[in-house]
């Protein structure tokens, strides 16, 4: 009888010990006042903020650092104008195109496919349907339009302005145009880049950038 009681005690003790481990709760800390920040943490929950939410959108009439203005509005008219007027503000270089290719794999290829044929994994798994190929006859895929759609989204596609910066959007645009060319069997974007790059370098602001870049090289 005594041994039975002993075994019982052992079982209860180990059960309580095991049940103390709860993976739904964080562990104890030695000195919480050294672990917990005094200032407001990113994504923190503090009473002084609206909705107690540290993460907020910028206040009205302010611009974030490095913001670049985009003059075309989110409408059919804006898209048509962007298609006609907008061109690359950055030179088409191997560096830019390969950076664009990397970003494309992250943000676009899930739907549009690695080759731009509209057969990404989400399309083949039928999560998204009706994704057109960049070489689709009924659509005019031009740099200005590609950039505009990344900023605002179009139809079922959402805006990617929050995830990729202005320069990155242009890099992706370069890669998209490259994919379109290869789908159509035309020469790639780097081979036809010279004419476009000449027109870009004639822009005053880009000249400045080119000068500073060459200075850095000398140093």
């Amino acid at each position: 009888m005594k041994t039975l009681i002993n075994i019982g005690i052992a079982i209860i003790a180990s059960a309580t010990l095991v049940s103390c481990f709860n993976d739904k709760k964080p562990n104890y800390q030695y000195f919480p006042n050294m672990y917990e920040p005094v200032g407001y943490e990113t994504y923190g929950e503090y009473r002084i903020f609206p909705d107690e939410q540290e993460a907020m959108v910028p206040p009205d009439n302010t611009l974030s650092r490095g913001h670049t203005a985009y003059d075309y509005e989110n409408s059919t008219d804006g898209l048509l104008r962007a298609k006609q007027e907008l061109t690359y503000p950055y030179p088409i270089t191997e560096e830019n195109v390969s950076a664009g290719a990397q970003l494309y794999t992250v943000y676009c290829a899930v739907c549009h496919g690695d080759k731009g044929d509209g057969k990404g994994i989400l399309a083949t798994r039928e999560k998204f349907l009706g994704i057109p190929s960049y070489a689709d006859a009924g659509r005019t895929i031009v740099p200005g339009g590609v950039y505009h759609v990344q900023v605002y989204g179009l139809n079922a596609m959402g805006s990617y302005a929050a995830q990729v910066s202005e320069k990155e959007r242009w890099q992706i645009t370069m890669h998209v145009m490259d994919l379109k060319a290869s789908l159509k069997g035309e020469p790639g974007i780097l081979e036809t880049a010279e004419a476009i790059n000449d027109s870009i370098s004639s822009l005053p602001e880009n000249k400045m950038e080119a000068v500073t870049a060459s200075q850095v090289d000398k140093k």
């Binding site: 994504y43 794999t105 992250v106 994994i121 989400l122 798994r125 929050a162 995830q163 990729v164």
Partner: peptide, 23 residues
């Protein structure tokens, strides 16, 4: 299953201190 890249949603991990909770 859908092979979405981590950076797709946690886009600030590429260029910020935080990996970012996607808005």
């Amino acid at each position: 299953d859908n092979q979405i890249d981590c950076n797709f949603c946690h886009s600030s991990a590429r260029k910020s201190k935080h990996s970012g909770i996607p808005s």
